[in-house]
Design a binder for these strands. Structure first.
Length: 477
RNA sequence: GGCGACGUACCCAAGUGGCUAAGGGGGAGGUCUGCAAAACCUUUAUUCAGCGGUUCGAAUCCGCUCGUCGCCUCCA
């Protein structure tokens, strides 16, 4: 609310109530929706990892003008439209490693709660009914604009929306809309109609999280008017502060412009996942601070893929060492790794505690990656060395687990890359090629060995010759 | 027009008052290797859009200028 970072103090110690605006289920989701979901998934996971008891509510708007329009266009019902795109949404989110919210309320399951809320506002004089519509009277709520830092007078002056003569002010917004012939409708004290958009979040958040709760999130484009209106409705009704901390994620941009339906410059999650592993998309979304804009492009996704590949390449090396390390005690150049191992969690926590700075946190992960590589390069062996590497491996898993990233085995990663890059060679065929090349190498038939290697390289497969065999990976980037 | 955010290397991106300006990608050179790949090492911003100011000290605070974007209409 201050527009600045503040220390996080939940209403109830150890407990976090968090409400995040989900989607309006009228079409498939694009990368912008993914960002919001991933960002708040990370926030929830990190809070839980730090021991908070988090209750996460994420709503689905399943009745609104666009859904009605879509249903008319597809000659079906709004329930079908909303149901279909809600399912698509969950499918996309699951692929991206976004966990389900604890409570996922639909607007249409809470009509009664919304009507009660609206009646409360009418009773208190904050809302008025006209011809079956009910509007919230913005002038009655003196703090209107406090979140978006807008002055209602300026807004009226610059209003671009068609002025509805029946409203007392152009800023007044609908709590309840009278339904037209043939539209879905519910009975209400004002006649048949349906809820306005903003009221569902007020009614459902207070039902599940209470009148005041800790965190409310959503895309930056929801700040005004959606979240501003939620504050007005909620605080007018309860007289209590609605939300402690507002968190808004920045936009995905394409050529520096906001990715959006109306501009038509959007890429659906499905399209993107046809070319990239979901983990790449997740990493990409975490590679910048959640409030900053992120420019979408193949170049950036390829860079994300390379970063993840560096991670898994190192994990492969770590696992290799743990399995094959010699018995002779030889600890070389371990000081730096040990030091980083002992300070790593603090560094990671500090980064994440500072407004969920995932970009910085990822930086520390790659510092650890470099340090363990350096250590392995120094040719250690023995139990102590092994223990250090195991400790590194466990630390990486723990942190990856907290963020739900880097959670595969290197083998899985390369198998998935093979699929997403559509390499037309089975792993069995590949192994045969490698064996064939190995026989050539044993007779020092370098020409044949190199020919096979080049052939595979042409398909995007990279071979690594090691002491005790050859491993393969898929070229990233 | 009103309000707000941002501008860090070739690209992406942390850093918001004080040690060598994280990390990833890319480039150059090297170590290792049959050759590679991977990894590691060295190097690639004496400087943080520009100009002023505050301070012992600023990328970081303040002011102005330039540029980019967003919100003010549905939007993640």
């Amino acid at each position: 609310m201050s527009g600045e970072k503040e220390d996080f103090v939940p209403i109830t110690p150890g407990k976090v109530n968090m409400y995040v605006c989900g989607i309006t289920a009228y079409d498939v989701c694009h990368l912008g929706h993914a960002r919001s979901a991933v960002v708040f998934d990370i926030i929830k996971r990190y809070l839980r990892y730090r021991g908070y008891d988090v209750t996460h509510v994420r709503n689905i708007t399943d009745i609104d003008d666009k859904i009605i329009a879509r249903a008319a266009q597809e000659k079906t019902s709004t329930e079908e439209v909303a149901g279909k795109y809600t399912e698509e949404y969950y499918r996309d989110m699951e692929l991206l490693g976004v966990s389900r919210a604890d409570i996922e309320p639909n607007a249409t399951d809470h009509i009664k709660e919304m009507i009660d809320t609206i009646e409360g506002l009418v009773d208190k004089g904050y809302a008025y009914a006209v011809d079956g519509d009910v509007y919230f009277e913005v002038n009655k709520f003196s703090e209107y604009g406090k979140l978006s830092k807008k002055n209602p007078d300026d807004l009226v002056a610059g209003t671009r929306v068609d002025v509805d003569e029946r409203k007392r002010s152009p800023l007044d917004f609908a709590l309840w809309k009278a339904s037209k012939e043939g539209e879905p409708s519910w009975e209400s004290p004002w006649g048949k109609g349906r809820p306005g958009w903003h009221i569902e979040c007020t009614a459902m958040s207070s039902k599940y999280l209470g009148e005041s709760f800790d965190i409310h999130g959503g895309g930056a484009d929801l700040i005004f008017p959606h979240h501003e209106n939620e504050i007005a409705q909620s605080e007018a009704l309860t007289g209590k502060p609605f939300v402690r901390y507002w968190l808004h994620n920045g936009f995905i941009t394409v050529d520096k412009e906001k990715m959006s339906k109306s501009l038509g410059n959007f890429f659906t999650i499905k399209e993107i996942l046809g070319k990239y592993e979901p983990e790449v998309v997740r990493y990409f979304l975490l590679s910048a601070h959640y409030r900053s804009p992120i420019e979408f492009s193949d170049v950036h996704l390829n860079e994300a893929e390379l970063s993840i590949d560096r991670y898994y390449t190192t994990v492969m090396r770590i696992n290799d060492f743990i399995e094959t390390a010699g018995a002779a005690e030889k600890l070389t150049a371990s000081a730096e790794l040990e030091e980083l191992l002992s300070s790593f969690k603090d560094k990671f926590h500090n980064a994440m505690n500072d407004d969920f700075n995932t970009a910085s946190a990822l930086g520390f992960i790659f510092e650890l990656i470099r340090e363990v590589n350096r250590f392995l390069d120094s040719g250690p062996s023995g139990q102590k060395a092994k223990d250090l590497v195991i400790q590194t491996s466990e630390l990486l898993s723990e942190i990856g687990g907290a963020l739900n990233i880097f959670n595969k085995s290197p083998k899985q990663w390369y198998s998935l890359l093979m699929k997403v890059k559509k390499i037309d060679l089975s792993e069995i065929e590949l192994q045969e090629k490698i064996d064939e090349r190995q026989r050539a190498r044993e007779t020092k038939d370098w020409a044949t060995a190199d020919k096979i290697r080049n052939e595979l390289a042409g398909k995007g497969i990279i071979l690594e010759d090691k002491k005790d065999g050859t491993t393969w990976k898929i070229r990233a980037g």
